[in-house]
Structures are given as C-alpha cells and as structure tokens.
C-alpha cells in the first residue's frame, strides 16, 4: 500500500473525507475550488469540491504567497502551520497578527467544517 498524501495535504484530506463519508459534504459544502499554502511546508495543494465529492492535487510550483495569484482557484488561504494547527483560536490569532492571506471569505465556513473533525 502506498500513500496518496501525507503531511498537511493528508490532514485537510482527512477532514474532507470524513465530511464526505458521513454525508455532510454533500449537504453543507458548495461546489468550489480551494488552494492551500502552508507557508512553512510548501508546496501548496488544491482541493476541488464538486458533485458531493472532492479531489486533491499537489501544486509543485506553488512555493510562496506571490505564486497564489497565478493559480486558478475560487478561494485560497496561505498561513504558517502554527496557526492552522491552533484550531479556531489559532486562526483568530493569525488573522489579528496579519499573517493569514485569504481570497474569498467563504473559505472560513469551509475551514470551520473541516476543523469540526479535529
């Protein structure tokens, strides 16, 4: 058996997989594309949520926040790992510290759903 994903992509995948498997993804998450960049653990990765399912792809060239502008995506988030692993509190602190870059505020609802798994 080989690993499809490990590390931060696997963490986000695990959350989305759980939401999908118990039926919450279909009920509560919109069709969209989201790009993640954990700034101290590049490269970034992109998730496409479509028709009650999702796919994940590692974006090998996505190394920095500047690279995000060239990615075709409905939403993105770039942040250091510490703030992602800090859950809701960590996220709020990251926002107030100004170290989180976001495209499209709807991403917060989706992150909240993923965070409900952990």
């Amino acid at each position: 058996m080989t690993a499809l994903f490990t590390g931060f992509p696997a963490l986000i995948y695990s959350g989305l997989w759980t939401l999908k498997t118990v039926g919450i993804l279909e009920r509560e998450l919109p069709n969209t594309s989201i790009t993640f960049l954990i700034t101290d653990a590049p490269p970034g990765f992109k998730v496409i949520i479509k028709d009650d399912d999702f796919e994940m792809e590692i974006l090998d060239g996505l190394e920095s926040v500047e690279d995000l502008e060239s990615v075709q995506t409905d939403m993105y988030i770039a942040l250091p790992s510490h703030y992602l692993l800090g859950g809701t509190e960590g996220f709020i602190k990251g926002m107030s510290d100004g170290v989180i870059n976001i495209k499209n505020n709807k991403i917060l609802m989706i992150l909240g759903k993923i965070a409900s798994v952990f």
Binding site: G7, W17, S81
Partner: peptide, 29 residues
C-alpha cells in the same frame, strides 16, 4: 496543539511523539 515536525509530513505532540497522517491508496485516511 500539535506542531509541524522536522520532516514536513510529520506532526509532533507536545511531549515529543511523532505522528503521521497518511492517505492510503484506497483513499481512507
């Protein structure tokens, strides 16, 4: 909270245990 490990596909607990999230090829985490 967990923190990122030295190797970027690992996570470390506060007491120093190294953990890995792995998505197996059957798609199950």
């Amino acid at each position: 909270q967990l923190r990122k490990g030295e190797s970027q596909d690992t996570f470390i607990t506060p007491n120093g245990q190294v953990f890995k999230f792995i998505i197996n090829d059957d798609g199950i985490p």
